[in-house]
């Protein structure tokens, strides 16, 4: 076959491949792009509570900057994010180390350790709502049995964020642990053998070898949890609906209520796009960090 004929055949094959995959590609792009474009369009319009719409340009975004509830929601979102993420990373790494070193741990115990994140968040929320009920819940019963004062948990404006963070930590720590466990299992044994020969203590080995080598894995877990935590919704909605007052009113809860309870879809879209931008920003920042700590 001449070179020209071979090139022709390759081009034809390429065209055929493109033609065959085009419908799937177009469908996928449309499925991703349409909701985003539609939300952008909604965010540029105002919808009165009776459903009448009018183009308002960037007015929804300027309203957002002057909206104290937005800034409060942003603060709550960030506070909950930071607290939950730190707790989940610390306990996740610890749980992963336990599971990694406890080779003889029966499978059933391992499954029990990682089971919370398999539970639907709505079920987890309902379960914790009952446990933490200040009057009827088991949590206060245990506290009082130990001679400790009862807490108002989710009903206290002071304690609601730490309590929600604890519920999320209970549920998602095993997920972080599984990711970290995967990272631990891929670490080169030769480094540990060298450390052992040099007489490094267990703590030094962890501090100087395990942790630095695990950093890319931890950053990956951070990215995955960041996306979820910044969009945190289900457990808060089930347990507090943003209360008491507006103490747990995250941006996501606020946007949902503006859109679906007060029917202001335009402003809700602007809120949600702003939250999406924050999520993207966080992911990009952590992606850069991942590049920096890669080995």
């Amino acid at each position: 076959m001449s070179e020209a004929a071979a090139t022709f055949t390759e081009d034809r094959q390429r065209l055929e491949l493109a033609a065959l995959s085009a419908p799937a590609v177009i469908f996928t792009v449309a499925m991703i792009a349409f909701p985003v474009v539609y939300t952008v369009w909604l965010g540029l319009h105002s919808f009165s509570s009776t459903g009448k719409q009018s183009f308002v340009g960037l007015a929804n975004y300027s309203r957002l900057l002057a909206d104290t509830e937005f800034w409060h929601g942003l603060w709550v979102t960030i506070a909950l994010y930071v607290l939950s993420l730190v707790l989940q990373l610390v306990f996740g790494v610890w749980l992963a180390l336990v599971l990694f070193h406890a080779k003889r741990l029966p499978g059933i115990v391992r499954s029990l350790f990682i089971s919370p994140f398999m539970m639907p968040p709505v079920v987890a929320g309902m379960m914790w709502l009952v446990i933490l009920d200040p009057s009827l819940g088991a949590a206060n019963y245990i506290l009082q049995s130990l001679g400790l004062p009862p807490s108002e948990w989710l009903a206290s404006p002071v304690w609601v964020i730490p309590t929600v963070a604890l519920i999320d930590t209970w549920q998602w720590t095993p997920y972080v642990a599984l990711i970290v466990l995967g990272g631990l299992q891929s670490l080169p044994p030769s480094v540990y053998e060298a450390a052992q020969i040099d007489g490094a203590s267990a703590f030094k080995t962890f501090q100087r070898i395990t942790l630095p080598l695990l950093l890319p894995t931890i950053v990956t877990a951070t990215i995955l949890r960041s996306v979820d935590l910044l969009r945190f919704f289900d457990i808060i909605y089930i347990t507090t609906q943003g209360g008491p007052g507006n103490a747990s009113n995250t941006l996501n809860i606020y946007g949902f209520r503006v859109g679906f309870e007060f029917f202001n879809i335009g402003y809700a879209s602007a809120l949600m796009l702003t939250l999406t931008a924050i999520v993207f920003g966080a992911v990009l920042a952590f992606n850069r960090l991942r590049g920096a700590v890669a080995w």
């Binding site: 200040p134 009057s135 009827l136 108002e152 948990w153 989710l154 009903a155 347990t239 209360g243 008491p244």
Partner: peptide, 20 residues
């Protein structure tokens, strides 16, 4: 009851039905 700011009909009925 403590935590009444999170009370709607479910919690109220549960508390009353339990005799508390």
């Amino acid at each position: 009851p403590p935590g009444v700011v999170n009370y709607s009909f479910q919690q109220i009925s549960a508390l009353y039905r339990s005799g508390r």
